[in-house]
């Protein structure tokens, strides 16, 4: 990767904050949730058409692009894939978050709560069930708001920001990106790990449709 311009993390922070640079985070979802550069895009790298789908999404993008990866191997693979699809990457940062934290730059993160804990503290949270309507037939936590993932962006304005939200789906995967999305939009949101499959397997109370 000798052709990469070495970027010092502070100037990347400035470029990102001023929206001069767009940051594509290729790490897996749980690492992203754990800590990420505010405003960076989630795009976990995989070997099944990742480059094309990212390139399609960023086709009109004029800004310089930076890639965040958890190690050099993924960074090179992701960069190569984007190049094949006509997208040039200006900066590559592996071990990004370690460097980022060393500089004391702000990171965004979403914490997790497990199902047992959520059940104990249920009255502290507004639960949002982001599954699809057909999935609600298996049972929904009685106090939960039902907002399918795809509608969350439209419903966000209706949600008060002074509440604590616990986002749940079937297993904790979709709710992870939903809770990150909410957190990045100024909500106090946690992700429920284990999801409704865990809730139901513990026979915790649900409303059946």
């Amino acid at each position: 990767m000798e052709e990469d311009r070495m970027v010092d993390i502070k100037s990347l922070w400035e470029k990102t904050a001023s929206e001069e640079t767009i940051v594509l985070d290729t790490r897996i979802m749980t690492e992203y949730a754990n800590a990420h550069i505010p405003g960076s895009l989630i795009a976990p790298y995989h070997r099944y058409g990742w480059g094309k789908s990212v390139a399609d999404y960023l086709r009109e993008e004029q800004r310089e692009m930076a890639i965040v990866a958890s190690n050099d191997a993924i960074a090179s693979a992701a960069k190569e894939e984007l190049k094949k699809n006509g997208i040039n990457v200006s900066f590559v940062i592996s071990d990004a978050l370690e460097k980022w934290k060393k500089e004391n730059l702000p990171v965004a993160s979403v914490s997790n709560i497990d199902v047992e804990n959520l059940y104990e503290k249920l009255e502290e949270f507004q639960v949002i069930d982001v599954r699809e309507p057909y999935e609600w037939r298996s049972g929904v936590i009685p106090s939960a708001l039902k907002i399918p993932m795809g509608e969350l962006v439209n419903k966000l304005g209706e949600l008060p920001k002074n509440k604590k939200y616990a986002v749940i789906c079937a297993t904790g995967s979709r709710s992870q990106s939903a809770s990150i999305f909410m957190a990045d939009n100024g909500f106090n949101a946690v992700n429920v790990i284990g999801g409704m499959s865990r809730w139901l397997s513990l026979s915790l109370p649900v409303d059946l449709q």
Partner: peptide
């Protein structure tokens, strides 16, 4: 759910990269 994983007895013939990319 937690995203944590491990590899057991990685093979030289597959190569380290294969495990890194598969985990990803």
């Amino acid at each position: 759910v937690s995203g944590k994983g491990l590899v057991v007895d990685p093979l030289g013939s597959a190569g380290a990269m294969e495990y890194i990319l598969t985990a990803q």
